[in-house]
Structure formats: structure tokens, C-alpha cells
Design a protein around this nucleic acid. Structure first.
Lengths: 190, 190
DNA sequence: TTAATCCTGTGACGATCGTCACAAAATTAC
DNA sequence: GTAATTTTGTGACGATCGTCACAGGATTAA
């Protein structure tokens, strides 16, 4: 839980007592590669703090898997719509490597947040960060071409390129795998 | 303020006292068409509740304006990254029509939230909705072609098509104005 | 009402992308 | 270590898209 505590302190003021009050909402869990953290049709009742490894969210459209996000160490993974509204998830979250997470249980978290203002503030900050990240990647598509989007990742998220395979990345960037391969070739020649 | 109060009640439990405590954070403001709610380089210290009219966010890239979001009645407009982190905004928010908003002042809001748990919860819910919306439109680009994105808006946000001009919409959908014009033509013929 | 400005449609053409097909390379399983 | 599987590279080709150019229609300002 060390990483999580550091993460929390980087976000907000958090006392020893708040940390104690938060404990009932927390549980550590391991996932093997290709295990589901969240399955399409399920209701998302958790925030997943990524301790080690990484996972991704993807839609299944006409049999094809389309990646919509990757979550690495110190990220929070969740379906924010389903978590907030209680409706069924339209997509999956799956481990891409052996994965260790700390699960925030929604019901317990809300209970703790009601009693402890710092926990409520923590929840708000987690969601805010999540929203910022969504906004960042949403903007990518409106501002840049496929080639420019790749460059953006190289500059701003080089870790992602290191760990995610070309095929998986292509899906995330919204282009065919062959196209990404050719973009990469074009770029290295220039 | 009637619309705002209804909006708040649709999001969360909110007592008469909480509403009173919130007042110091609120102020009503009118914008003319093409007035800036937020200018690139400014720090965003407000949440803008849209009471009537609509506005948009856009980046200025190489002299070209690229729309990234539209905000209509009962939406919250803000730069969530700048609002959260205190860093300068990289984009603009501008009124597309005569606009009436209720401004949530950040400092006053945080002060009120510290003292009133329901206000803290309201803030969290506003941000959550904002995140859900970002996620929705972010996903659009990863799952669908330009033509399918247009269809999605027709089905899920017909109001947007009614009020936003073709040129403005094209920028939001990430295609050239001419392309959107041709997509529309293709579709009406089939 | 008239002029100026903005918005939309359309043709031409080159650039980019998606799809299919198959081979090579890398990874995984046994 | 070998076989099976997955991932990546590449050619061909048709579809879509961006850009430039210009004309007509709609809207706005005086």
C-alpha cells in the first residue's frame, strides 16, 4: 500500500486518521494477464489503483476489439460513467500483464467519504485527474493527424510506446495496424 | 437561478442550507456572442453553468481554430485541467450565442465545500459528469469513422446538429468542412 | 435596400488510409 | 529446442480525406 499512500499524498492533504478510515474500502488484488477487471455488461463498483503492471479498456465492435485507454502504475482505472450512474458498462477492462491493483469499493468509499471530508476530497481529485486524462486524449484526435498523434505519444508518453505493442497501439490511435507500421517507417526515414 | 437549482437536485441530495452556503460562490453573468469565457493563457478559476445559449472550447493551432467541445443548457463548461492544477489554459472558451451563465468561483466553492459536505459532493458529481462526457466523445474517434461519428450525433445529440453550423461541427468531428458536406450528401442519397 | 461578409456546395487532384494477402520475425507453449 | 502462435512488415488497390479554387446562397451591417 506504500505506493498508494504516496499517490494520495501527491493529490491532497490526507491525515493518518483519514488513511485509517479509508482502509475498509481498500483491498489488494492480483490479476493474471488477460484477466478481466471489468466485463461488458457488468456494473462498475470499483476504482482500480494500478500498483504494478498495466491494463487497458476496449470495446468489442462487430467482433473487433478497439482499445480506448491504457492504465499504468499510479493511474486510476475505472468506467467513470458506470461507476457514477450505476448503469452497465459498455466496455471491458483487462490486464495486459500480471497486474497488482488496490481496489476502492464504491459502497465503502462513499460511506467513508460521508464521514471524512478528506476522503470526499480525495475522491473528487481522483475523478478530476481521470477527467483531465480523458480530455487530453480526446483532444488528440481533434487537433492532430495519425502521424502527429504518434509523435505526441513519443514526446509525452514515451513509456506507453515502450510497453504497448504496435497492434494494440494502432487500435488506440484509431488507425489500422498496417497504417501505423507505415507511419513509423516514414518517420524513421526522415 | 431556478434552472441551476433543478440541475443540482438532479445530481445529488442538496438541502436548503447547502443552497444558502453555496450562494457566496455563485454569480450570474451575461456574455455577448464571441465574448471569451476563458482565454488561452489564463488560469481557469471557474465552473460555468450554462443557463441559456451555448459556447464552445477551441484550440488555435497554426492559425486554425479547432473545436474540441460544445456546451449547452444544463452543461458545466470549464477547463478541468487548468481548474484542477492551477496551470494556464491551452485553449479558449467562447460564447457562440448570447449566453447566460452562473459562475462557480473556485476559491469560494472550495471554502464552502470544506464546510458543507453536500457541496463537496456536488463538486464531485459535476466533475464526474464532465468526465463522462469527455469519455463519450473521446471514444467516438476510436470506434467510428467520420460518417459513423456524424450518425452518432444525429441519434444521440440531435440538438447539437440543429444549433451548430456545418463548419463548426466539422472541426469538432475532426474532418474538413468539405468532407462533412460530402458525407452529409452521401447519407441523404442512401 | 445594398454591400459586405460568412457559410455551404462542388469539382479536381494528390495524399493518406483501410483492406486483403502473404511472408518474415518474434514470442510463447510444450 | 522445436513447433505453434502471435506480431509485424510490405505490396497492391480501391475508398476516403485534405486542400485549393470558385460559385451560389444566406446572413449581417449600414
Amino acid at each position: 500500500m506504500d505506493n498508494l499512500l504516496k499517490y494520495i499524498h501527491s493529490l491532497t492533504v490526507f491525515s493518518e486518521e483519514s488513511w485509517e478510515s479509508l482502509q475498509p474500502a481498500l483491498s489488494k488484488k492480483q490479476f493474471k494477464k488477460n484477466d478481466f477487471l471489468l466485463h461488458e455488461g457488468q456494473i462498475c463498483n470499483s476504482l482500480f489503483y494500478i500498483d504494478s503492471g498495466y491494463c487497458k479498456s476496449y470495446y468489442e465492435v462487430d467482433g473487433a476489439k478497439k482499445n480506448t485507454a491504457f492504465f499504468f502504475e499510479n493511474d486510476i482505472a475505472t468506467n467513470i460513467s458506470s461507476f457514477g450512474s450505476g448503469e452497465k458498462s459498455e466496455y471491458n477492462i483487462i490486464a495486459c500483464e500480471p497486474l497488482t491493483v488496490v481496489i476502492f469499493d464504491k459502497q465503502q468509499l462513499f460511506k467513508a467519504a460521508k464521514e471524512t471530508a478528506e476522503i470526499e476530497a480525495l475522491g473528487r481529485n481522483c475523478i478530476r485527474l481521470f477527467a483531465s486524462k480523458q480530455e487530453e486524449f480526446s483532444t488528440l484526435f481533434k487537433l492532430y493527424s495519425a502521424q502527429e498523434r504518434l509523435k505526441y505519444l513519443e514526446v509525452n508518453h514515451p513509456d506507453m510506446l515502450q510497453r504497448v505493442s504496435l497492434s494494440q497501439l494502432a487500435s488506440f490511435l484509431g488507425v489500422a495496424r498496417e497504417t501505423l507500421s507505415r507511419i513509423r517507417k516514414r518517420r524513421t526515414l526522415v
